[in-house]
């Protein structure tokens, strides 16, 4: 089941990101579904799975991106790893805490891209990229990621309640 889910994510997320995601873009900025998926898997299933899925999703992203064949792979792998480690130190994994964590991780990923991609334009262009790409994308990722986390966590809690209740109906 888990393998099928990962295969679905690997085969489906990047094509969706490249094609139909522009319908939900704001000001030309799309959320990074691979980053969100790596974070959520890191949060829910631990740092190892977050890192491995991040590496794989990042590699697929690199195949269809104009950058080198390592940038997304390394950043998404790191993000998955850090998400898994971060959730250990959160006292309560509330949607707000998750929102803040994804915001931070997305900003970190964006900073790596900024340093790797936009090095020749000077400070003014770098600041423009921060304002127009890095921050909007981080906010988008955080809101979408926290929303998805809330949905998944609610579903898991409901399923657990049904399983543990004596009647088996969650009553």
């Amino acid at each position: 089941m888990k393998l099928a889910l990962y295969a679905g994510l690997v085969l489906g997320l990047v094509p969706v990101q490249m094609t139909v995601l522009h319908y939900v873009s704001l000001g030309g900025i799309r959320p990074d579904l691979c980053l969100i998926a790596s974070c959520l898997v890191g949060f829910l299933l631990g740092e190892l799975e977050g890192m491995l899925l991040g590496l794989l999703l990042g590699f697929v992203q690199d195949l269809f991106s104009a950058g080198g064949l390592w940038l997304n792979m390394v950043t998404k792998g790191t993000i998955g790893l850090l998400a898994g480690l971060a959730v250990r130190y959160l006292a309560n994994t509330t949607p707000m805490a998750i929102l803040g964590t994804i915001l931070g991780l997305s900003c970190l990923s964006g900073t790596v891209f900024l340093l790797a991609v936009r090095t020749g334009g000077g400070l003014a262009e770098a600041m423009l990229a921060v304002r127009s790409v890095l921050i909007p994308q981080a906010a988008f990722d955080a809101v979408l990621g926290a929303g998805l986390y809330w949905l998944i966590a609610n579903r898991v809690r409901t399923a657990e309640r049904v399983e543990t209740s004596p009647s088996g109906l969650g009553l």
Binding site: V14, P15, Q17, M18, T19, H22, G28, I29, R30, D32, C34, V60, Q61, D62, F64, S65, A66, G67, N72, F113, V117, R118, V133, Q137
Partner: peptide, 13 residues
């Protein structure tokens, strides 16, 4: 058939 997989490049596939 697509746009860049990230927001950091202006590219098409």
């Amino acid at each position: 058939i697509g746009r860049d997989a990230t927001n950091w490049y202006r590219s098409i596939v």
